[in-house]
């Protein structure tokens, strides 16, 4: 059975775009497979690991659990939307400077979660950073340096 195609208008990293999707196409799928934002990682695909986190209207959400067809007119920010040309975003730079990663797979999701936090709360306590990153699993176990990186970015 061929299901209907939906045309969905999104704004991704500042660019308006229109995608044609099936009802079951997740936002994660569209961002990676149709739009080429491969910084958005597919992990557990059950909402547990946070590797696929993007900002939707400024707030971190797991894109694996969002149907694209339900995201009409949403403003999406992926990790690719943070840097300014070759100039890394301060949170990205802080992760580099503080070795906030090992293999790097969870890093885009973690930086997105950190961006969501710092936009709302520019001077978080260590506890607030840990809370904000609690939805981002790091199988290398770099949590300590991730927290340090976010605190460094907050200055």
């Amino acid at each position: 059975m061929m299901m209907a195609q939906f045309t969905v208008n999104l704004n991704v990293n500042g660019d308006d775009c229109s995608v044609s999707v099936e009802p079951q196409t997740t936002l994660l799928g569209v961002l990676r497979d149709q739009l080429g934002y491969n910084g958005v990682k597919a992990g557990c695909e059950e909402g547990d690991c946070g590797a696929c986190a993007v900002l939707i209207d400024g707030k971190p959400v797991t894109s694996c659990l969002v149907l694209t067809a339900s995201a009409e007119d949403k403003k999406i920010t992926t990790i690719e939307g943070l840097a300014d040309g070759w100039q890394l975003h301060p949170i990205q730079q802080a992760f580099v400077d503080n070795h906030g990663m090992q293999c790097g797979y969870c890093t885009p999701g973690a930086i997105i979660a950190a961006k969501g936090l710092l936009d709302e709360n520019p001077k978080p306590s260590e506890g607030e950073v840990r809370q904000a990153l609690s939805g981002n699993l790091c199988r290398c176990g770099s949590y300590g340096k991730m927290v340090k990186s976010v605190l460094a970015a907050a200055g």
């Binding site: 909402g47 149907l67 339900s70």
Partner: peptide
């Protein structure tokens, strides 16, 4: 019905539910 999808989407991915039609309330 689909609200946040934080329970419905994992259950659909895992095949625990087989929706014929999803009605999103998000708009």
């Amino acid at each position: 019905l689909l609200s946040g999808g934080m329970s419905l989407m994992p259950m659909t991915t895992l095949g625990l539910v087989q929706p014929g039609m999803i009605i999103s309330l998000n708009h």
